[in-house]
Write a protein that binds this DNA or RNA. Structure first.
Length: 421
DNA sequence: TCTGGGGTCCTAGGACCC
DNA sequence: TCTGGGGTCCTAGGACCC
């Protein structure tokens, strides 16, 4: 039996989340900004039509509000995560096999659901809209790469009205002929330039290249893309999320940071957040890499990047311990005279909490630490606005990332519920 | 003045071993 | 003058994704 994938993708996800709770944003150009209100990460169709590109620095389009009525909002991750969960739960009603691919996309297995897949796609789209308010597009095909292309057409073609099926050969050929290589899943900027230099400009042309030549020039990932375009599936549906390999917490500062004390406060708060993530996943980390960096946009002589790895004697998820290691690394990394823009840490060698190998010389009372962490986590989940923080994180925290234009957390905070007046 | 964060997979090359 | 070869493991960096 042939596999059938549906790719369900939320339209302009962050912007749509905002619009669901603020309908006056409907029909206007709206963008959502990254951390620190730095650059544009989600755009309404109206904003796209104004020529605002994905990832552009916000200061470059700031004056669009006066000229074109552009509305810019800070990211509201709490709201987006909750809306994502609602959409994914709705999708689970349509198939037992679903792979949540990202915050706003999921692959569904539609094999064995009959011949009228387009109709089925329409039902999915309509139900998600009705139950959550979220507009989605559905692309249907025999490989993930083709489903991505189908989804792109579903979004753009008015006739498709949000659902497009690519299972018929003539239709596939036509779609591939109209898809530039830059719009193929897995083809990034570097590969795109190389392909075009070879005269390969469309997905149809790429489908026809010699597989061995492709392997030599672009490695196994390149060949997989060619096969996927031919309808030979190389990427399975992964309905079991694979074990995490690392946990990263890093942020740009709200302003430049010069002192080692402030760097240590920041890294302590990132370490604390990393500890929460570990415990939430039931994991412990065996190693940590800490890094600091200046802005990429300053004079090269004023740039500094450095990182430092630490292997723990015993894997841990105990926040005070993580903070100690992180602060120690910062002391060694810090060089006076630089304006630091960002710091972060990456936890590696992750192991299930219950399987931590004890260390003969490790005297810490693990049971007690675990109870303490459980208590702290419980308080912070219940009272996110009066969180317990570690003294090392500092009180003022003037280096904190800025979110000047954030909307309310409508769905997760009682005091921020939508008010209808 | 102002330019995000969190991931995965693959590959080349060095270290090390016999 | 003469200086092996092949396998495995690890890591850093590249490329890509949303």
């Amino acid at each position: 039996m042939k596999y059938i994938f549906a790719l369900v993708d939320c339209n302009n996800f962050y912007v749509s989340c905002e619009r669901i709770f603020e309908p006056s944003l409907e029909g206007r150009p709206v963008v959502v900004l990254s951390n620190n209100d730095g650059c544009v990460v989600s755009r309404s169709n109206e904003a796209k039509r104004l020529g605002i590109g994905m990832g552009v620095a916000f200061f470059k389009v700031k004056d669009f509000d006066a000229k074109h009525g552009l509305v810019a909002l800070s990211s509201n991750y709490t709201l987006y995560a909750d809306m994502s969960r609602r959409v994914m739960e709705t999708l689970c009603n349509f198939t037992p096999e679903i792979e949540v691919y990202s915050i706003d996309e999921a692959f569904l297995n539609l094999s064995g659901l009959g011949d009228n897949l387009t109709d089925y796609g329409r039902r999915i789209r309509q139900t998600v809209k009705q139950w959550t308010g979220m507009p989605v597009s559905v692309g249907i095909a025999e490989t993930k790469t083709l489903a991505k292309i189908a989804n792109r057409i579903a979004k753009r073609s008015p006739e498709a009205a949000g659902v497009f099926e690519l299972t018929e050969q003539a239709r596939i050929d036509e779609a591939l002929a109209q898809t530039g290589v830059e719009n193929i899943w897995g083809v990034g900027i570097k590969t795109c330039i190389k392909l075009k230099r070879e005269g390969i400009k469309t997905a149809l042309a790429l489908r026809g290249v010699d597989a061995e030549w492709m392997r030599r020039r672009f490695g196994v990932t390149g060949v997989r893309t060619v096969y996927e375009l031919r309808g030979i599936s190389c990427y399975e549906l992964e309905d079991q999320p694979p074990a995490k390999k690392g946990i990263t917490v890093s942020r740009m500062f709200g302003r430049k940071v010069e002192t080692v004390e402030e760097l240590k406060e920041a890294i302590a708060s990132y370490a604390s957040r990393a500890g929460e993530k570990l415990r939430d996943e039931g994991l412990a980390a065996g190693a940590m890499t800490v890094f600091v960096m200046t802005s990429r946009f300053v004079d090269p002589r004023k740039r500094y990047f450095n990182s430092r790895g630490v292997n723990f004697p015993t894997a841990t998820n105990y926040t005070p311990e993580l903070i100690d290691y992180a602060a120690g690394a910062i002391e060694r990394l810090y060089k006076k005279g630089f304006l630091y823009a960002k710091a972060g840490l990456i936890l590696g060698d992750l192991v299930p909490e219950g399987k931590v190998q004890g260390n003969l010389f490790d005297a810490a009372d693990r049971q007690k630490s675990r109870r303490l962490m459980r208590a702290v986590d419980a308080v912070n989940i219940k009272l996110p606005d009066s969180r317990l923080i570690w003294a090392a994180e500092g009180i003022g925290q003037s280096w904190r990332t800025k979110f000047a234009k954030r909307s309310k957390r409508y769905t997760t905070q009682w005091d921020e519920l939508l008010e209808v007046v």
